[in-house]
Structures are given as structure tokens and as C-alpha cells.
Computed example of a mutant assay.
Amino acid sequence: MNPAERLLEVGRYEEAERSVRESLAAYPSDAALLALLASILRARHDYPAALAAASAAVAANPRRSAGHVERAESLILLIRSREAVDAATTAVTLDPSWPGGHLVLARALVAARSLPAARDAARQGLSLAPRSVAVLLTVADVERAAGHREAALEAVQAALALDPGNAYGRWLLAMLDAERLRVRKSMRALREVARDRPAAPDIIAMTWPIRGVLSGLRRGLAVGAVAVCFLLAVGHWWWPQVDTFARYVSAVLAAVMIGFAARVLVPAGRLPWRCLRLLPRLMRSASVASLVLVIVAVGALIAFASSGWWVLAVVALGAVPVLWALGLVEMVGAGLDDPGMRPALLGLAGELREWWRTTKRELREAWTADGRRGE
């Protein structure tokens, strides 16, 4: 094994990069060294540089699948999923017997939302290495993305049977428990994973009870507040007795939402609230604003149920679009914390600028041509 590979395995990324660059000084066109450099740079979250190194590895030896795999990995992280699928497909074509190529192809297809094809690729990798922990966890990831939780759970449990201490497998099992609302079990597992990896705790994952409650209440308010206001409109214009029914619906809706929030937040304990203040700034601000607005909206529904004042129902309805907007801001805030998101946004901005320049030039040329024909 190359010394740089050993350094990469133990997380000494800076030393690994220095070692491989020293080797590249003597052999600048070595495809294996360039692919290894791409892997190290990817581990250091320098995704554009990793993509450049992987592309150089492909240029140095287009028939070597490792360069295409590294290129696909970097493209996935840079949110260029279609290009990632092409690169991973090339890797699989060059070396169809290597499970790693099929796994990267499966992840690229998940990023491109081609879930049936992703499941096929993951299963192909599993057939080549049925006792590989990495393969089983990739299968679990793909099945989870496809909404097949039982299949994902089966794959995770098989992986943990082979490697009980695998941090990613334990994290994935905790998130599957979260999706099934096994709150205490999920939070306990996430706490243990964070304790074992204090240098890289997943803060966003540990706030899932708060974010999950906000997501559920956002949907509940969207349906419930619209229903209550619709009943009020019916009562005002056609059937006055419906007003009383609208108040009952409002009370039931508020009770269900409060019960759901308690069902998740009480077993979760204080950990999600402690982690909330550690979220990326934009995400934290959106989450706190959503919490305040949800409390106001549910309070308005309770007040309407007790008083019958229609303005309160309208207040709850008015909170719905704001909550959805805050949910979008929360997603953007989480994405901005991803090292791959910023280069992707810069690339998109560059494409838009180029599109605008091209459009202006073509319009100017068309106007000039029309003017000449008019003469």
C-alpha cells in the first residue's frame, strides 16, 4: 500500500497530500497517483480540486476505471449528477467485475433521482461482494432513498453484523429509526456516534426531532387551516351552521398537532435543543422563526375554536406560505454548509451569466439584421 494511502486511512490528510504530491513531482502523469490525490482532496472537502485531479487521472490513462470513479465521486459532491452518472457508467464498462464502480454508479443515479436504476446498480455490486460492509451500506442508502425502509434496515443490520462499530452504519440505523418515530432509540444512537467521533458530530442529524415536527406541522397547517377557512366561507355564504363545525375542526386540528409535537419532542429530550444553536446560521434562524410562527398559528386555531372570531383562522392560514418559505430557507441554509454547494451555485451563476451574454448578443444581431433588411 502506498504510504499516502495509509495516511489517508487514518485521517492524516495533509500529510497524505504532501506525500502524494512529492511522488507526482517525479511522476506527474501517473494515473494512480492522480486518482489517489483526488481521493485525498475529496476527503479534505476541496471538491473542485479533487475533480481537477480526477480529470487529470482520466486524461493520463482513460482505460483505468479508478480515475473515472474518482471523477464521478467529485461530480456527485458538486451536484453535477448527470455528469457523475456518465463517469460512473464509464468506470463500470471498463471494469464490470469491480464492486466499487457499481456502488458509485448507484450513488450517482440516486443523486440524479433515477431510483430504479440505482437499485439495480447497488444489487449488482452486492452480487459481486455480498459480505462487503461498504456494499451493504450503499444498498441501504439506495433503498432508503427509494422509500424501501425495510430493505434498507435489512442491509444496515447485515453490515453491522459484520462490523458492529461502523460509525456510518450506526448513524444510518439511527436515521431509519427516526423515520419510524423510534425517537429515544434514534437519539441514543446518534449521541453514541457523536461521542465516538467528537471531531465530526452530525449536528443537523441530531436536530431531526425539531425539524421533523416543523415539517409535519407545516403540512398539517397547510391542510387544516385551508379546511377551516373553507368551512367558514361555506358558513358565511350558504350554511351558517357550518361555522360551529369549523370551530370543532380547528380544536381537533390543534389538539392533533400538539399531540404529534409532544410525541416526538418529549422523548427526544434536551439534545436537539442544545444542537439547534449549533446549526449553520441561516438554517438556525429559519428553524427558530418557524418554531415561533407554528406556535402563533396553533395558538390562533385554539383561540378561534374558543371564540369563533374568523380573523384568527385567517391568521393561521396566512402563516402557511410563510412557513413553507422558511422551510425553503432552512434547506438552503443546510446546503450552504455543504462544501459542494457553493461551487455548484457559483457554476450555476456562471452559466446564467453566459446565457444572458449569449442571449443579448443574439438579440442584438437579430435586430441589426432586421434593420438592414428594412433599409
Results as ranks from 00 to 15, higher is better:
9 E>Q: 13
11 G>V: 11
12 R>W: 03
12 R>I: 08
12 R>Y: 03
13 Y>N: 13
15 E>P: 07
21 R>A: 12
23 S>C: 05
27 Y>P: 01
32 A>D: 15
34 L>M: 11
36 L>G: 00
39 S>L: 13
44 R>M: 13
45 H>T: 14
46 D>I: 03
46 D>W: 04
47 Y>H: 14
50 A>I: 08
51 L>K: 11
53 A>T: 07
55 S>R: 15
56 A>I: 08
72 A>K: 02
75 L>E: 12
78 L>G: 13
78 L>Q: 14
92 V>L: 06
97 S>V: 14
99 P>R: 10
100 G>A: 13
101 G>V: 10
102 H>L: 02
109 L>F: 07
111 A>Y: 06
111 A>P: 05
114 S>C: 05
115 L>D: 11
116 P>I: 00
119 R>T: 14
124 Q>F: 06
130 P>C: 11
132 S>K: 08
136 L>A: 13
142 V>E: 01
143 E>H: 00
149 R>P: 03
151 A>K: 07
156 V>A: 00
158 A>H: 11
162 L>D: 12
166 N>T: 08
168 Y>I: 06
168 Y>S: 07
173 L>C: 10
179 E>Q: 15
182 R>Y: 02
183 V>Y: 01
187 M>K: 06
190 L>S: 09
192 E>S: 11
197 R>D: 15
202 D>H: 08
204 I>T: 12
208 W>I: 03
212 G>M: 02
215 S>D: 13
216 G>N: 09
218 R>E: 14
218 R>N: 15
219 R>W: 09
222 A>V: 04
225 A>P: 05
226 V>I: 02
227 A>L: 15
230 F>V: 12
242 V>H: 00
244 T>W: 02
248 Y>P: 01
248 Y>M: 03
248 Y>R: 10
250 S>A: 15
256 V>H: 12
256 V>T: 07
259 G>L: 06
262 A>K: 03
263 R>Q: 13
264 V>G: 04
265 L>Y: 01
266 V>D: 01
269 G>W: 01
269 G>A: 01
282 L>S: 13
284 R>H: 13
294 V>K: 10
294 V>N: 11
299 G>S: 07
303 A>Y: 09
307 S>L: 04
313 A>D: 04
316 A>V: 01
317 L>T: 05
321 P>W: 09
326 L>W: 10
326 L>V: 02
329 V>C: 09
333 G>A: 09
339 P>H: 09
342 R>N: 07
352 L>R: 15
361 R>W: 09
365 E>H: 12
370 D>W: 06
371 G>K: 02
372 R>N: 08
372 R>G: 03
374 G>I: 05
